[in-house]
Structures are given as structure tokens and as C-alpha cells.
Design a protein around this nucleic acid. Structure first.
Lengths: 241, 241
DNA sequence: CCTTGCAAACCGACCGGCGGTCTGCAATTA
DNA sequence: TAATTGCAGACCGCCGGTCGGTTTGCAAGG
């Protein structure tokens, strides 16, 4: 048995390749259920090669997270750099980022993303991702809120805490969204859609009230989001193990 | 080498013993870092003995969670069974459960509990515990909110969603509490205490507003909680690994 | 243009330890 | 005594991670 043919690559290229493979596997099988060997096989690299570039499986996860966070952050930074618009507009832009992101990319892929992220086995992946995004978003949202307070349109005692709470509350939607996605095609679909709409309404109402804005000021920015979500054909994949 | 002296016990007693040992270890070392062998050593039982009572390590975790949830739930059920008091009083009782629980039990132990629960390595334990408590609390809080709507004191479109959101928002306090605890004794303690107070205020303000109550209706039910928290001598344990 | 030298990329056998299984025995009960 | 049940501990497969050695690409010297 002669040794496997070998292909040296630039470190960055290898790293990127491994991160790509890892991301695919993490999203499909989950972090814990993905073996380092799985990544190795998919990338066609040996264990030694892998550990030359990453010092642990955890570092691989953080690498993947960094990549995703960067994507999210690039969208946010556009909002952050706008100094002229009134705070209320910036807030709208900020809150609509997610909806815009979902619409821009093909939505069905994002649905899969949510489903996988919210599985029991992916708690770690999900939690770390949320934390990462929250950390990145905090300063930007804080800045917006402070601006709003200065302009007199927001009424908030502690901008930082308010920002934190709003970001925290954003997680509420994920939860409802997941259940709605899981209910698609079943006989509870209608009920789930109503619950999703209620969650969306209540979340944004809460944001309004946290900031001392009139009810109905903020919204998801994508009125037909629920219909679109529920309409998407459910890709029934019986959990490949 | 003669076999280890052996002590048969009643199944329930063994189970309880193993659960007790597991709980101790999970809270000190975290779920993932606790080996089944660790539990065996502490309980003085063999692997075969263990797997005679539990079919997996996960079942052990759920067992521990059940025990804790039962403790929490027993407090809640008292509130739930009260049919006569007005909803606003029930809401107060419900929201004060946590504060009461902290005060009744020696507080320093609870501090440790929070610290451990919120460590990176305990994400799974924490998340599952929150989910469990939330599931148990949902119907009770929903019932209270519906009662409040019937009485005309609450203004809420969807009681279930409101209950879910309130329970969700309750998690915000954990986060702030943890940081305050970690800051005790350091030079950022004052700032952390202020932030904790701000988080508490904002959380309950948010609850008021979700339910359509006048600002300041709900509170933590333990005004000096922040002072007590910050005053407790920090038990500096340099993270036994 | 061909050595030669060397650092970096890579291989894969190997390790300790994990969760979990299994066979058999000892304690208990009938 | 026979049957049941609580339990011991050797064992298994697998996983994350290590390590000594090999290959590759490239630049300097002839």
C-alpha cells in the first residue's frame, strides 16, 4: 500500500477549505456529531495536516463562527457608519437586517440553517453563534440608541442595557420561527403560523416599548414573511445519522 | 485481588444516590467534563451497577434536571392553585418566586449555582434546565395572564405568546446577574452593580409593558437584592480542573 | 541549469480516555 | 434451593489529539 498522493496547498487555502468542509458538516450533522475524521475525509487531508492548521476541534468551530459573524457584521457596519440619518431610521435599518438577509439569499437555504441551528444537538453551535453576533451588534445598536436619546425620539435610561435587552429579545423570534418551520405541512400549520405572527408582533411591540416609542413604530420589515415561510415546501429529510 | 466489598441497595436509594453525586459533579465540573467514571468513584459503585439503573449519561442529566425542576415547580404550583386572588397579585407572587427562593435558601450557595450554570462548559446543562423550567412555568403564567385579561387589568392579544416572552425575558436577568457576581471584589464592581440594577429595572419595566400595565407595577420583590449580591464575599475558587 | 539545504506542509500509526456493553457472580427473596 | 436482581469489572469501538518521520516547494550557491 503506497502512501496516499499528497497535495500541498497554501496555508490560507487549506484553512479555508477545511473551514468550508467543517461548516457544511456542522450545519448538517451538528458540531458534536461531526468527527474530526469526517472533516478530514471530506477535505481529503490527514490528521497531521489538519492539526498543523488548527490546534483543536474547538478552534475549528470558532473559525466557522468567525466566518459567519463576519458576514453578518459586514451588513451591520453599513448601518453603523451612517452618521446623518435620524436614529429612528437607523433603528429600522438595523432591525430589518435580518429580514433583508433572508430575502436576499435564497430563503429555503436559510430555513435549513435555522432548523439545524435549533436542534438539540446543536445547542453549543447555536449559543456561541448568538453570543458572537450579540457581541458584534451591541456597540452598533448602543450607538443608535444613544443617538436616539440625544435627538429626543427615544426614552431610555440606560442605552447599553436597552441594546442588550433588545438583542436578547430578538432570540425570541428564532424560537417561534423554528416551531413554525417544523409545523409546515402538518395539520397544526395554521396554528403555528398564527403563533409566529403573534411572536413577531409581540417582539417588535416590546422593542417599541423598551425604547419608549409609540406602539407599531418598529416592524419586521417583511410583512409577508410568515406566509412565505409557511409556503416553502418542507424539505423532508429524515435526519441522516 | 479480591473483589470490592459490595453493598446492595434498593433501586430507588441507589438511583437517588447516583443522582445526588451526579448533581454535585455537574454543578462543580460541568456536564461534559464530568465522566461517568467520576460519578462511579464518588458513589462507590461500578459501571455495571450504574448502567443497571441508568441507560445513558444523558438520562442521568435528565434525572438531575427533573429533580431541580420539581423543586421549582412545587413553588409555582402553590400560585397556580390560587383561584380567588386577582391576577395582578398572582403575577406578583409568580414573579417574586425567584427572589423568595434565593432568600429562603442560603444565598451564597445559589450564587455558586448561578456561576457554574453560566460557564461556557455548562451551556448544555443550562439550556436544558431553562427549557425545562420554561415548559413547567408556561401553563401557569398563561393561566394568570388569561385571568388578568378576563378581569380587564391586563391588555394582551395572545396570552400564551406573552407568557412565553415574559419567561424568555427572565433569562436576561441571569446574564446580568452573572456578570455582577463575577465582578464582585474587582474595581468594576460598582459599575457592574449599576448595570445589574439597570437590567432588573428594565426587565420588569418590559414585563409591565408587555402586559399593558402601568410602568412600575411589577418588581423583583427584593429591593436590596443587588446590594446583597454584591456584598457577599466572593468565594475564590481557582477553577479546579 | 543543476544541486543543496531547509522550513513548512503533511502523513498516519498511535495514545489515553470516553461512553457504553456483556458475562458472570453475589446478595436477596421466595 | 431456585430464581431474581443488584452489581463487578473486563472489554469494545470510537474520538480528539500527539508525534516522529516524510514529502514538497523554494531560494541560495555553484
Amino acid at each position: 500500500m503506497k502512501p496516499t498522493k499528497r497535495k500541498n496547498m497554501q496555508p490560507e487555502a487549506r484553512r479555508a477549505q477545511l473551514l468550508g468542509c467543517a461548516q457544511m458538516l456542522f450545519f448538517s450533522k451538528g458540531f458534536e456529531d461531526t468527527t474530526v475524521q469526517d472533516v478530514l475525509d471530506l477535505a481529503g487531508v490527514s490528521k497531521g495536516g489538519f492539526y498543523h492548521h488548527f490546534k483543536s476541534k474547538d478552534e475549528l468551530l470558532f473559525g466557522v463562527l468567525d466566518g459567519m459573524a463576519e458576514g453578518v457584521f459586514s451588513h451591520m457596519s453599513v448601518v453603523a457608519s451612517d452618521e446623518t440619518s435620524p436614529a429612528i431610521d437607523l433603528l429600522h435599518s438595523f432591525l430589518h437586517l435580518r429580514a433583508n438577509y433572508l430575502r436576499e439569499h435564497e430563503y429555503s437555504g436559510q430555513v435549513e440553517f435555522f432548523r439545524v441551528m435549533n436542534q438539540e444537538k446543536n445547542i453549543i453551535l447555536h449559543e456561541r453563534f448568538k453570543r458572537r453576533v450579540c457581541e458584534d451588534a451591541m456597540p452598533i445598536l448602543t450607538k443608535i440608541i444613544k443617538k436616539g436619546c440625544d435627538e429626543g425620539s427615544f426614552t431610555v435610561t440606560d442605552a447599553e442595557t436597552a441594546a442588550e435587552l433588545i438583542l436578547f429579545v430578538s432570540g425570541f423570534l428564532d424560537f417561534a420561527l423554528l416551531r413554525a418551520i417544523d409545523a409546515r405541512g402538518t395539520d397544526t400549520a395554521d396554528h403555528a403560523a398564527q403563533k409566529l405572527q403573534a411572536a413577531i408582533d409581540m417582539q417588535f411591540l416590546t422593542v417599541d416599548r423598551i425604547l419608549g416609542l409609540p406602539d407599531g413604530t418598529t416592524d419586521f420589515g417583511w410583512p409577508e414573511a410568515v406566509d412565505v415561510t409557511m409556503a416553502t415546501v418542507p424539505p423532508i429529510l429524515p435526519s441522516a445519522k
